[in-house]
Design a protein around this nucleic acid. Structure first.
Lengths: 125, 125
DNA sequence: TTTATATATGAGTATATGTTCATATGTACA
DNA sequence: TGTACATATGAACATATACTCATATATAAA
């Protein structure tokens, strides 16, 4: 093992590069979470990574609404809104109750508002 | 204006639907932020909506690293990592200093860890 | 039952995104 | 000056996504 100030030569790696910081690598490796967690994190943040969904969530943070209300406020087609609500439902961020012909949507997850708030703080700073 | 328990008929709308909850709509409209804010929010959350970037950010939360270290820990190509670091730089989430041939990356934004933490709390609950 | 309304959904399309591959740029060292 | 290394980047490609359009489903009212 040939050392040069914190550097370490390895024979094989993902890329052709041969010199790395061994101690740092061992340290950060231990702190990495498992792949499933990162995948779930990815899925969660992806939901918030779309302005239509963000708007729907902030509307529902104020008051429960039916599909038509949302589509009217956002000036978007009923279909587009319904598709996004489906996405939000599939990730358990919103829920709904049928009221006659209508479907009244509301936030399903207590973390939604918190995540929104942190994001808003960040972009408005 | 014809009222039927909180409902209101409108002549024209984005979609063909005619009956909405007028009061709710007016209320939530006022709470909506402006489009620019939602667009920025979207951009921010999109960055976090990718597991490679999430992993890079959590590595850098532990310790500053060069491209090769990251590529070694994540078992990903140097090119893929470099492209993602470029994305992270363009959004001002990481910064770097040149050290000889290497580039030592670190977190640039104080909010990164906070957003990560909230997300992890959410998915691990 | 017929008609209108409210929502859901499948298919199609345009755009965005993440990776690979090849190569360029820049630095250190012989 | 030439060679090896560390990183950056453009192009290409495959996949994911967000919308539109058409239509299905479900409920209420006539």
């Amino acid at each position: 093992m040939k050392h040069e100030n914190n550097l370490f030569e390895i024979d094989e790696g993902t890329c052709d590069i041969k010199v790395i910081h061994e101690e740092s690598i061992n340290k950060v490796k231990e702190e990495l979470l498992d792949d499933d967690t990162y995948h779930e994190l990815e899925e969660t943040f992806k939901i918030f990574g779309n302005s239509t969904r963000l708007k729907i969530l902030s509307l529902l943070a104020v008051e429960d609404l039916c599909v038509c209300d949302i589509s009217e406020v956002l000036k978007m087609s009923q279909s587009a809104v319904s598709h996004q609500l489906r996405t939000l439902r599939s990730k358990n961020l919103v829920k709904y109750t049928k009221e006659g012909k209508q479907a009244r949507y509301s936030l399903a997850d207590k973390h939604v508002i918190e995540i929104l708030k942190i994001g808003i703080e960040h972009v408005l700073e």
